[in-house]
């Protein structure tokens, strides 16, 4: 409670001072909250440690049975067969092929769209397009999976009559559309952060909009845009449902987009859907596969993080 009441008018103000008990309580509350907030922020570190611990410990158990060399070089992945093979290559091939298709859609389209939004579109169009992209980003992946399997694949079969129901092309294309919003919004942020002085300099030299966009803005925003690509890659590599639904779950060492193949993520789904007992090699194998995936995405993310940070420092 307040200590003293204000004096009568005409006398110099002497301050409403809080009571010492109130101040003590306030200080205690401040300390407790600071501690709690710090604990909440550190939780994220705990989560990361837990992820690393789980992946590493189960993978370690896995590698006690399967040699690292065999894991990295064997071209067959048949853990559920009587004579199991544990070569990560077929899963990697599927992952790489589908991601490559997705990125070959999302990177050019995303870059063009970001340049268009940041350099050409007026603010009204942007006000409409940005929410639209957010909506696109909000569509659940399982819905994209449905779309790939039951809409895009039948459509593609008109082009390629021999296309199997499970193939890598269709989920790749759909995934490209799926990661488009991320690439657009991250690269547009980078482009908009380029100072107007650079643009003005270019226009003053007689550059057209396109020349300014491509020769000035894009290079200036390059590290930010590259970061956007990397984050897009991380997302493509780690995407699960679209692939599990539309690419099939059969490990297949091929880079042919017209065939079906399992990826690292679909293998994890496949094993999880079956009855795999805790502690078996099959159980451990999904952690080894996941560790590979984790390291891949981590590399992309860390690289993207530092590129973005460097970009922020420049401007």
């Amino acid at each position: 409670m307040a200590g003293s009441l204000p004096p009568a008018d005409g006398v110099l103000a002497s301050g409403i001072r809080p009571s010492p008990e109130f101040l003590a309580r306030r200080r205690l509350k401040d300390r407790i909250m600071r501690g709690l907030l710090f604990a909440a922020a550190s939780l994220s570190v705990l989560v990361t440690l837990a992820i690393v611990y789980v992946l590493a410990s189960e993978s370690l158990a896995f590698f006690r049975h399967v040699g690292l060399v065999a894991f990295l070089t064997d071209t067959q992945w048949t853990p559920l067969f009587a004579e199991p093979h544990y070569g990560i290559l077929p899963l990697l091939a599927g992952t790489v092929t589908i991601s490559a298709i997705a990125l070959s859609v999302a990177i050019p389209a995303g870059t063009v769209l970001a340049l268009y939004l940041s350099e050409y579109a007026d603010s009204r169009l942007r006000e409409v397009v940005k929410p639209l992209l957010e909506m696109l980003a909000g569509v659940p992946t399982v819905v994209f999976g449905y779309f790939a399997l039951l809409f895009v694949t039948p459509l593609l079969r008109r082009l390629f009559p021999d296309l199997p129901g499970f193939n890598m092309l269709s989920p790749g294309l759909v995934m490209g559309v799926m990661i488009l919003p991320y690439i657009v919004s991250l690269s547009e942020d980078a482009m908009r952060a380029v100072p107007d002085a650079l643009r003005e300099g270019a226009y003053a030299l007689g550059y057209t909009r396109l020349q300014t966009a491509v020769r000035v803005v894009l290079p200036a925003a390059l590290s930010g845009v590259t970061a956007a690509y990397l984050l897009g890659m991380a997302r493509a590599v780690g995407e699960t449902m679209v692939v599990a639904i539309a690419a099939g779950q059969n490990p297949n060492f091929t880079f042919n987009p017209l065939e079906g193949a399992a990826t690292i993520t679909t293998y994890i789904v496949q094993v999880s859907l079956g009855d795999v007992a805790y502690g078996t090699i099959a159980y451990q194998s999904i952690f080894a596969a996941a560790l590979t995936l984790f390291l891949l995405t981590l590399a992309f993310n860390v690289l993207g993080f530092f590129l973005r940070r460097r970009f922020r420092e420049v401007y």
């Binding site: 994220s44 989560v47 789980v54 991380a234 995407e239 699960t240 999880s272 996941a290 993080f305």
Partner: peptide
């Protein structure tokens, strides 16, 4: 936290 945002969701499942 930046990195956690980029970890594939299926890995959270394994966690």
């Amino acid at each position: 936290i930046t990195n956690l945002a980029g970890v594939p969701s299926i890995i959270y499942g394994l966690l």
